[in-house]
Amino acid sequence: MSTENDVDGETTRITRKGQVTIPKKLREEFGLEEGDELLWQKTEEGIKVRKTTRSAGRGMLVDDDVSAEKREEMAEEMEAEIRSNRETEWTPE
C-alpha cells in the first residue's frame, strides 16, 4: 500500500483480487467498520465512494404504532447483537 499524500487524500493499490485498503485515518474519520457497505458511483470527475446508511430498512418489520425512537433503539440493539455474534462465532480455518 502506498501512503503517498496529495492535497485531498491518500493513495492505495488495488490487489489482484480487486480489493482496496481504506486508509485507517479515513476509516476512523468516517466511522467505517467491518461489515459496513460502501456505494461506488461513477461521476464526471471519476469515482465517488460513500458509506450507505444503515437505517434504510430499519423498522420494516415493526408495527406502525412503534415510535421512531423505539425503532432506532431496537435496530441498534439488533446491530450490536449481530456484531457480537460475528466476533464470537467466526473462527479462521
Rank of each mutant, 00 (worst) to 15 (best):
E44W: 02
S55H: 12
S84D: 11
E76F: 06
R50I: 08
D65C: 06
M78I: 14
L39E: 15
L39P: 05
T53Y: 04
S84I: 06
R16H: 15
R71C: 04
W40M: 14
G35C: 01
L61V: 14
K25H: 09
D36F: 01
D63C: 07
D63R: 15
G9M: 01
T21I: 12
T52S: 09
M74N: 05
R54Y: 13
S84H: 13
R54T: 13
R58D: 11
K42C: 09
G35T: 02
D6T: 10
E33R: 07
L61G: 12
E28R: 05
T21K: 11
S67L: 04
W40I: 15
E34Y: 10
I14R: 12
T11N: 14
T11M: 15
D63T: 13
A56D: 06
R54P: 02
G59Y: 00
D36A: 01
K51E: 01
E45P: 03
T12Q: 12
D36M: 00
E69Y: 10
R58Q: 11
R50L: 10
E77V: 07
V7H: 09
E87F: 06
R86F: 07
T88H: 09
D65F: 10
Q41N: 11
K17F: 05
T15C: 04
E81H: 07
D36V: 00
E44L: 05
T12S: 12
S84C: 08
E34F: 06
I82H: 06
I47L: 08
K24T: 08
M74G: 04
T43H: 00
E77H: 14
K24W: 05
V62R: 12
M78K: 08
E10S: 13
R71W: 03
V20W: 04
T11V: 15
T43V: 02
A56K: 05
K48I: 03
E34P: 07
N85D: 15
G9E: 00
D8F: 10
I22S: 01
K25A: 08
M60P: 03
R16S: 13
K24I: 05
L38S: 02
F30C: 02
G35K: 01
Q19K: 12
K70P: 01
D36P: 01
T21Y: 10
S55D: 13
T88C: 05
D65R: 12
V62N: 07
G59M: 00
R58H: 08
E73P: 02
R58F: 11
A80Q: 06
K24C: 02
A68F: 07
E28C: 04
D36K: 00
M60K: 15
E37R: 15
M60D: 13
L26H: 04
D64H: 10
T52F: 05
S67A: 04
G57F: 12
R27Q: 06
T15Y: 04
Q19Y: 08
L32V: 03
E81I: 07
K48W: 10
R86W: 06
E76M: 05
I47Y: 04
K24Y: 08
V49W: 00
D64N: 14
V66S: 01
T43I: 00
G57R: 10
